[in-house]
Design a protein around this nucleic acid. Sequence first.
RNA 1: GGCCCCAUCGUCUAGCGGUUAGGACACUGGCCUCUCACGCCGGUAACACGAGUUCGAAUCUCGUUGGGGUCACCA
Length: 488
Amino acid sequence: MADPQISVPRVRFAPSPSGYLHIGGARTALFNWLWARKHGGSFVVRIEDTDQERSSLESVRAILESMKWLGMDWDEGPEVGGAHEPYFQSERKALYKAAADKLIAEGKAYRCYCTKEELDAQREALKAKDPKAQFRYPGTCRNRQDQPDLPYVVRFKTPSEGATVFDDLVFGKISTPNSQQQDFVLVRPNGLPLYNLAAVVDDHAMGINLVARGRDHIGNTPQQVMLYEALGYEVPRFAHLPMMLSAKGEKLSKRHASVSVSEYQDKGYTAAGVLNYLARFGWSSGDQEIFTVQELIDKFDWAQVGKSDGKFDQKKFADVAFEHLKQSELTSDAEYLDLVRPFLADAGISDPDPKILREALPLIRERAHDLKDAAHHLDFYFRQPPIFEEKATKKFLKPESAEYLRGFAAAISALDSWTAEALETAFKSYVEAQDVKMKVVAQPVRVALSGRSASPGLFEVMIVLGKDLSLQRLEEGALRAEEAQTTA
RNA sequence: GGCCCCAUCGUCUAGCGGUUAGGACACUGGCCUCUCACGCCGGUAACACGAGUUCGAAUCUCGUUGGGGUCACCA
């Protein structure tokens, strides 16, 4: 395989602003970004908004926001500018027109006055005659000499003989017979270019030397190669990525759960987790599953990118994301707290005691699988009283529990050292004195402290809450337990 | 349908002529245990099929089957 590092990489991510940043698009952006960062190259973002109907500024904003959230910064593009401005194709019309004019002047392209309606009619007529037949533009205007004062499109004179070949970094040599190609349209009647022309002109103008994109673009590549050659441009390297499919193996679309990056953000996954999963989708580095962003940059290589399509696995993704939250080497305490704060606010806790937060964090690490979950695990420390889960209360705060709650409270209220060890010793001797199983006391205590039947270890929770609040909650729990009797 | 591409556990994958085919997720048996979780030990589970090439094929070649992509005045 040829060395893709012939020069410092200039790669790009070129979304069309017709929706949010798609999870598959994010992976394409990621592979480009990793490659640029690894080799000190440039990562360019270009907005492909030549289709006025579908493009919106709102989409541009959403896509850029998601890129930023993921931490994929761009060296050139919207907002940051660069040496090849502008980065919106809708603002680069002159360039495309010049290229189209040049092609026409050299006899490599021509004006076509056939209307869309006429062509659609021909297409349908053919379909009616032979449903399997494939309609190709018949070349009606190919050798036309006159230039009527009518709307026209510009078509490329595609050679009908031979084949167009390119060497893909992932798939190797791909050869397509030119007979498959038709005289495709370069410019619309309104003067705006179509994708193939615009992409080629811009990639050349912007000095892009590696075009990495989804495999669904393989079919466009031969046309683009022809354009590069016709325009006298150097052909860049290409790298096509295998498809990211839904769990059912279908092409990812809005119909499937969570296709937009912002959804993952809202659900409480971290950017590092998303990036890690995305990177491992189609790429691997031996048996390693968990990577920091820096490791991704260091280890990414096209040679390790696979060819076969994959299905998105929500469970695996959730696990990778969890791993990043669990390990303090991956997400530091300070980072974690910054990340969880907005989710706590959503849960109604807008000004959490930083001391409690710090002390509770270690208890959350191995329990919270995402940030929403983390906020939930954290919330009872701050709510006074905590929210009592009905099932837990009903099951464990029964009248006979009141005695244990008060008894245990009495046993620990005398403690002069409020440590987990001291609490555990006191708990055990109390349980022993009562001659009951530990859980008989433990569960009512847990519910009294947290409002839930599941929580971190009792003594750890009491340390975080502190002596006063712990004793208060035990007493309040006892009251609740007694109340259960009267209302039962 | 034409053209292009792909094919290892259910899923993501390691493997790049000689391995008891490895890891991770999921599933599952057990341990730990004040609950939940984490963790630890173990288990089920894959080279799509058929011909070659070779002393030897998951690895190379061809075919079959299956899957995907693409055939626009979308990108």
